[in-house]
C-alpha cells in the first residue's frame, strides 16, 4: 500500500449515530461504500474478518426486538468484536437502576460501542451525553428515530434503482408513531428523493407538519401529503409500507382495521398504479393482510427479504466506522 494516499476524509464526522439529521450526503455515501465491502464479506464461505478484534459492543435493549438486535449481534461477531447482549428483563433496570447509572456502569466496563433501544424518545441522546469514549448507536427510541433501519432502506433503494435522487418514494401507513418513517424523512431528504406521505389524517405527524408552516426554509417543505393511496402511488419508484401497530386502534386513531386495510393496504391491484419496476419495502415485522397483501410482500417487486441481509452489512459498516474512525473526542 502507498503510504501517501491523498488525505481524503475516511470516517463520518460523528462519534455517535443517533438520528440521520446529523449525517450529510457524504457521510451517508461513505457508509454505503463501506457497506459494499461488508456485503462481499457476507457472501463468503467463511464469514469472519478480524477488523474489530478485542473491541466490545454491548446491545442494551429495553424494548423487544428480534431482527435489529440479532442483526447488530451478527454484525459485531462477523467483525470479530465481543458482543454482550443486555435486555431489560435481565438487567439491573428491573431492580430500579436508572439509565444514568447504567450508562456509567457501561462506560466503566470500557465498551467501545453501545447499541440502545428504548421506549422513550431521546434515550440514546441522554446516554451519549454521559459517555466520554463509548460510541452510542440508537437502535430505536420511542417514536423518534431508528437511523440504521433508515440507512439500510436508503442503501436498498440505491442498489435497486441506482440512485435515490429524484426518485418518488411513497411512505404509506402509520406515520405518527413510526420512528423508521421519521428517520427516513431525514435520510431521503438528504439524498434528494421526492417524498409523498400517505395515511389517515389521525396518523400523520402533525408536529412537523405544523412546524413546516411556520418556517419558510423548512427541510421538509417539499414533502407532499396525500390521503388517497391511489393518487399517491401514481408513478412511484419506491413504496414503503409501515407496520400498523394494532394498539393504535384502541387509542382511537382508527375506526376499524378492516377499514384501514381497505383504504391504505398495499395490494397487487394498487401496485399496478406505481411504476412497473417500482420496489416495495417494509421495515418488518409485517401484518400481512392489513398494511400489505401477502402476494405483494412475497411478490417479484418485494425487496423485503434482501432488506434483512442488507441490515447486517449496514450495521457492520456503522460499527466499523464508529469504532475505528477518527472522530473528535467529544461530540460538540
Amino acid at each position: 500500500m502507498t503510504t501517501n494516499e491523498p488525505n481524503t476524509r475516511n470516517s463520518i464526522r460523528h462519534k455517535h449515530i443517533l438520528d440521520l439529521d446529523e449525517l450529510n450526503r457524504s457521510d451517508i455515501e461513505l457508509i454505503f461504500e463501506n457497506t459494499d465491502s461488508m456485503m462481499e464479506v457476507l457472501n463468503r464461505g467463511i464469514r469472519k474478518v478480524p477488523a474489530l478484534r478485542g473491541k466490545t459492543i454491548i446491545t442494551l435493549f429495553y424494548e423487544s426486538s428480534t431482527r435489529t438486535r440479532v442483526s447488530f449481534e451478527q454484525a459485531g461477531k462477523i467483525l470479530s468484536a465481543d458482543v454482550i447482549n443486555v435486555s431489560s428483563d435481565g438487567s439491573s433496570s428491573k431492580k430500579g437502576e436508572s439509565l444514568y447509572n447504567t450508562a456509567l456502569t457501561l462506560q466503566a466496563m470500557k465498551a467501545d460501542a453501545v447499541v440502545i433501544r428504548h421506549q422513550h424518545s431521546g434515550a440514546g441522546y441522554f446516554l451519549a451525553q454521559q459517555m466520554d469514549s463509548t460510541s452510542i448507536i440508537n437502535a430505536g427510541d420511542g417514536m423518534h428515530a431508528h437511523p440504521t433501519q433508515s440507512l439500510l432502506d436508503l442503501y436498498t433503494i440505491k442498489k435497486h434503482l441506482g440512485t435515490i435522487s429524484s426518485k418518488k418514494v411513497v411512505i404509506v401507513g402509520d406515520l405518527l408513531y413510526s420512528r423508521v418513517a421519521r428517520s427516513n424523512l431525514w435520510g431521503l431528504t438528504t439524498m434528494g428523493a421526492n417524498i409523498v406521505l400517505c395515511g389517515p389524517k389521525t396518523l400523520l405527524p402533525q408536529d412537523f407538519l405544523d412546524s413546516r408552516l411556520r418556517e419558510t426554509n423548512h427541510p421538509f417543505r417539499d414533502i407532499q401529503i396525500e390521503e388517497n393511496i391511489d393518487t399517491a402511488l401514481e408513478g412511484a419508484d419506491v413504496v414503503m409500507t409501515l407496520r400498523l401497530q394494532s394498539e393504535r386502534q384502541k387509542a382511537g386513531h382508527l375506526p376499524s382495521l378492516r377499514e384501514y386495510s381497505r383504504r391504505f393496504g398495499v395490494t397487487s391491484e394498487r401496485l399496478k398504479i406505481a411504476k412497473p419496476n417500482a420496489i416495495i419495502m417494509h421495515p418488518g415485522p409485517m401484518n400481512e393482510g392489513i398494511e400489505i397483501e401477502s402476494d405483494v410482500a412475497h411478490g417479484p417487486q418485494s425487496v423485503i427479504e434482501s432488506q434483512v441481509t442488507t441490515g447486517v452489512a449496514i450495521r457492520m459498516a456503522v460499527l466499523y466506522d464508529l469504532i475505528t474512525g477518527n472522530h473528535s473526542e467529544k461530540e460538540s
Partner: peptide, 22 residues
C-alpha cells in the same frame, strides 16, 4: 483485494474508505 478489515493499526491511523474485495 482490500485489506481494510485486516489492518493491525486501525486505532492509530484513520482508515481509508474500503473498496470491495473481488
Amino acid at each position: 483485494l482490500d485489506i481494510g478489515l485486516y489492518r493491525d493499526d486501525i486505532s492509530e491511523k484513520p482508515q481509508a474508505t474500503m473498496k470491495p474485495t473481488d
